[in-house]
Nucleic acid binder design. Structure first.
Lengths: 215, 215, 215, 215
DNA sequence: AATGAATGAGTCTTCATTCAT
DNA sequence: GATGAATGAAGACTCATTCAT
């Protein structure tokens, strides 16, 4: 195992960083961030922790890089649906489906995100860590604004029920994130199962927004 | 500091256990389970570690007792709405509102639950810990069955859209749990804000179940 | 203190392990296993806990490694006398002398053995600990069989008195181990004192086996 | 179990002290002194530790009281054989047999003695503990002198081989203590087994002393 | 670029002991 | 006499991090 070199080792520093990030996300997702040691990650890479510290300054940096990557993936995957035309309901349906889809695609990364949603001591974070966190926060804001926009537009046009925008947004995001908590890909499956999941959840999302509080 | 005795100290061992559990839940909710040391909890009680270990065998036992308490609270609070009459939509609306309500009431306890949703190594758990976990699992199952029942009934009677029951249940629970992640009581507020939140989320829940996947 | 490196540090990992084992045996022998903390051992090495834990997984592993080493030393030192020819009395005399000799040579290791003769909870032992214990048990069995063989042969040939073999073996081992309890090398001495001790005890061992119970 | 009161509770403080001492010796013998907590002992008495601390000032006092009791028992049991007439060989045989006998009778107490043979930090001992230790040391000295006397007499009269008295005494005591390490009473047995053991070991003791070092 | 060794701060946990009742 | 509660010191162990090679 040690001595063997994976494809990533021949593909430059970026690919190496990415391989480390993948391994870390996987371990974090399985065992939890706190219970995963740098040694665990190194072992799952067939290497020692020196390798990891060569590319990432700290465990916190690893976590924050995973978070940023998760948000980037999600944003990039959903943006086309936002930009595509159509009425608010149609756009939101497409965005929701895309969100659910990417949740299932990069499950490990998103698991880390939901696990580390709280608990971010700014104190003690390095410069790099703060920078990553700031980028993540900014992009996360941008991302949520996509949904906020469409919801607002839908409310204004009467497609969605009049309601508190903040509560609606929070609830929607949680509904769309739900698969991160329970979805576990089966060995045989790939396409159909995921399609059914994303279709149903997108429909539920639409239904949730259409309902009036005083219903 | 020592020598001072709080009200709980005069009310028997159960009240003392409960006071410890409350303090632990509060600290865990604020800083995260892993980042909270037993000493932190003791300090917030104006006592020392020993007091806690006198009543709970381990940190894991504390966490599991909090989880069980959370599920019990929730179950007890929602059961009347399940038992009350009405068509499936009405009952589910009441159940959802009750669930959201109890989330906000015992916020700290539920925060611990969602944080520790994963990562429960059966290995290394003590007998007491396993017993608490088993009770929690059982009651959690019973609780979810309440919702499952009503959803199924609603689907059969045509009030809810035909859909995958499991996905619907998972999504619904996540939607109802959402406030645990973002709700933070403001000092002035109490009644109206919470009412608005639970009403809106309950409405969204209903809307989500009414929507057909092929919509 | 840090920065200084002893000879062992230049001689590879085995020598380093051995240096730690020596230090541990010495501390254990002086103060007792339970009263010796890992920090004590580290301090006597001019290092910190971490060094020890880098090479040994736990305190129990340290103890068991010392036990195994002790038995190996003893077995290796006595085996030639067993294999050498002669009548049972002669062989047993040589074996006894060799045993007493090695007791005094590696006093610290053997002290640990006699102290930890009992009290080995299998429960809670790590895999490595169990493996070390199993090896020790096996080698200890092999070792005692050397004596058992010679005693039996001696009884059969009439050189030794007819007696219960098990009691005889137990008693003999205890007699030969006795110096571990009371022997304490004096600074000036080396050769003659030890010779006298081993000669006298070997003679007593022979005498003990020759005596008939009904004498 | 709790609430029940044993016979000892009705028989005055001495009997109560003795019951505690018995329980402590038993627990210490089974699990080792360090691994036995005061709570363990209390539990085996069907009481709580308050009871123990009512009668003994500390755990160390408990251990030292057990040691003293062990030596007293042994001394009292062997003294008649010392005082009884006969040639040195006869007396020593009787003394040895008596010693082995009492070892098996009060096994738990003697186990504690051999376990705590070392490791007696004078520092930190209370007044009572030091007093108990001093009495034990004195009585132990007196006791060993009984054997020393007889051995010397035997050597002078030519019954025993000329040899180093100190080595002989040490070795003899160890030989006679051996059953403490390995003897474990079987449920059915009592008389015959023990008789065989004490007879054989006494014979071996005699044989050991008769043998000349230059043999 | 990567490794093995070492550090040291931080945590859980145990348990002898004290004390109010 | 005895109990339950609480204390606090001590110790094993983990693990992120640093560093020489």
């Amino acid at each position: 195992m040690s001595g063997a070199r994976s494809a990533a080792d021949h593909a430059g520093p970026d690919a190496r960083r990415r391989a480390i990030l993948d391994a870390a996300a996987r371990r974090f997702a399985v065992a939890g961030v706190e219970l995963t040691s740098i040694d665990d990650i190194a072992r799952s890479l067939g290497a020692t922790k020196g390798k990891i510290y060569h590319h990432f300054g700290s465990k916190g940096e690893l976590v924050r890089a995973i978070r940023l990557h998760s948000v980037q993936l999600t944003h990039d995957h959903v943006l086309p649906a936002y930009r595509g035309g159509g009425d608010p309901a149609t756009r939101l349906h497409r965005m929701a489906a895309a969100h659910v889809e990417v949740m299932m695609q990069a499950l490990a990364y998103h698991r880390v995100v939901v696990e580390t949603m709280r608990a971010h001591p700014h104190r003690g974070a390095t410069q790099v860590e703060r920078s990553l966190a700031a980028q993540t926060r900014a992009l996360q804001g941008t991302y949520e604004d996509l949904f906020r926009d469409v919801i607002r537009e839908g409310i204004e046009s009467g497609v969605f029920a009049g309601q508190n925008l903040s509560i609606a947004l929070h609830s929607l995001m949680m509904l769309l994130n739900a698969p991160v908590y329970w979805y576990r890909p089966r060995l045989g499956e790939r396409g159909t199962d995921r399609d059914a999941i994303k279709t149903q959840i997108a429909a539920m999302a639409l239904g949730a927004l259409r309902a009036a509080p005083g219903d």
